[in-house]
Design a binder for these strands. Structure first.
Lengths: 204, 204
DNA sequence: ATCGTTCTTGATAGATCGCTCTAGCGATAG
DNA sequence: CTATCGCTAGAGCGATCTATCAAGAACGAT
C-alpha cells in the first residue's frame, strides 16, 4: 500500500487528518474508529495520540476546521471565477452535484454528518462546526455584498444558500439523485437574481 | 422494573421504537447503543431481538418509517390548518423553530442525522430513508398541486422546501440559533407565493 | 389442569471501541 | 561516542458494542 517513495509524501499528521476528514464525512464521527483512520492513513496508531493528545475529539475538531476552511475556499473560488454572483451560485451547485455523482454520492458537505451527530452530544465539536458555519456565512455575505447587495439581504441570502445546499445534500445522498441539488441551486440563483435587480432572471 | 401501572402503558415494542426514535434523532444511529435504548424504554434487552430479529438494523428501519410517517402527518396538518399554502409553509417552519428551541436544539428532523450516517454505509437503511423522503415529496407535491400549482413546479417547490428545512436544521442545531429556520422559511414562502400568482407577497 | 404460544429476562460471548503505555528508531548536538 | 528529542510502533487495558441463548412468566385454548 504505502510503498514509500521518499518523494513528496505528506507528513503523518497530514495523512491522519486527510483520512479522518474523508471517513468522518462519509461515515460520521461515531461511525469511524481511530484504527480505521490510521489504517487508511497508513500511519501508526500511536501517532494519533502524539499529534492529538486530546484524542479523537481533538482530531475531530482539527478535521472540522481544516476541511471547513478548504470548502470555504472552494466557494470563494467559484464565486470569483464566475462573471456574476448568479452564475457563481449556479456553478457552485453544479460542481457539488458533479462531485457527488463522481464519488458515488459519498462526498457532500465535509462536516454536515458530524455536525448533526455532535450537536447535542459533544459541546467542543459542536462549537467547531458552529465556527465553520459562521465563517461560511461571513464569507458568503461579503461576496454578495461586494456584488452590490445590501448587508442584511446578503446575509439572509447566504444563509438560505447554505441551508438549501446542506439540505439538498441530505436528500441527494439518500435518494441517490441530483434533482435536489438542481432544484435548490436554481431556487437560490433565482433569489440572488431578484436581489440584484434583474440582469439575469433565470428560468426558475 | 416493569411493573406497574396497569393503565394504558404502551406496549414494549412501542416503547422501544419511541425511545429509539428519540435517541437516533439526537445522537445518530451509530452513536446510540441498544442498551441505551432499552434503558430509556424501560424494556428488557432480549425484547429487542424478540420484536426485531434483524437486530439494530431492523429496529432502525422501523424507527425511520414510523417517525417519517409521523412527521409527514405533521406537515399535512400544518398545511390543512392554514388558510393558504404560503401561510402553511410559514407556520410549519415557525413550528419547527419552536420545537427546536423548546428541546434545547435537540429535536429537528427525525431522520436526517441517521440518513447522512447510513447513506454510504448501510444500504437497507439508506433505502428506508429514501422511501420516507420520497413519501414527503409526494405529500408536499399533492398539497401544493391542490392549491393550484402545476405538478412540475409543485414538485420543485416541495423539494426546495425540504432541502431548505433540512439544511436550516443543520445550521440551527450547530449555531444554536433559529435564524436559519426563519430565513429558509421566508425564502420558501416567497417562492410559494410567487408560484401562486401573488395573493401574499410576504415581507421577504 | 395441561399444553402451546408469546413475551420477558438477563447472563454472556466475541468483537471492537478509545486510549495508555513502553520500547525503539533516526537524526542532530555536544 | 553519548545524549536528547521527535516520532514511530503496536501490544494490551477496561469498557462497550451487537448479538445469542436458555429459562421462566403470562395467558388463552382445550
Amino acid at each position: 500500500m504505502n510503498a514509500g517513495p521518499a518523494t513528496g509524501r505528506p507528513s503523518t499528521k497530514e495523512r491522519i487528518v486527510t483520512a479522518g476528514a474523508e471517513l468522518f464525512r462519509r461515515q460520521g464521527y461515531t461511525g469511524t474508529g481511530l484504527k480505521q483512520i490510521v489504517a487508511a492513513a497508513d500511519a501508526p496508531f500511536g501517532s494519533v495520540y502524539h499529534f492529538f493528545p486530546g484524542g479523537k475529539e481533538q482530531l475531530g475538531a482539527e478535521v472540522v476546521r481544516t476541511s471547513g476552511a478548504a470548502y470555504g475556499r472552494l466557494f470563494t473560488a467559484a464565486m470569483e471565477a464566475a462573471p456574476d454572483p448568479v452564475t457563481g451560485v449556479r456553478d457552485f451547485f453544479a460542481g457539488a452535484a458533479r462531485t457527488l455523482v463522481e464519488t458515488g454520492y459519498a462526498d457532500a458537505c465535509p462536516i454536515a454528518t458530524l455536525a448533526l451527530e455532535v450537536a447535542s452530544t459533544n459541546e467542543p465539536l459542536r462549537q467547531a462546526t458552529a465556527e465553520v458555519f459562521t465563517g461560511w456565512i461571513t464569507l458568503g455575505t461579503a461576496a454578495f455584498a461586494a456584488a452590490g447587495i445590501g448587508a442584511r439581504p446578503a446575509r439572509e441570502l447566504t444563509i438560505v444558500l447554505l441551508a438549501a445546499l446542506e439540505g439538498a445534500f441530505v436528500l441527494a445522498r439518500a435518494l441517490r439523485s441530483t434533482e435536489p441539488l438542481e432544484a435548490a441551486g436554481e431556487s437560490v440563483a433565482a433569489r440572488a437574481s431578484a436581489l440584484l435587480g434583474s440582469p439575469d432572471a433565470g428560468r426558475g
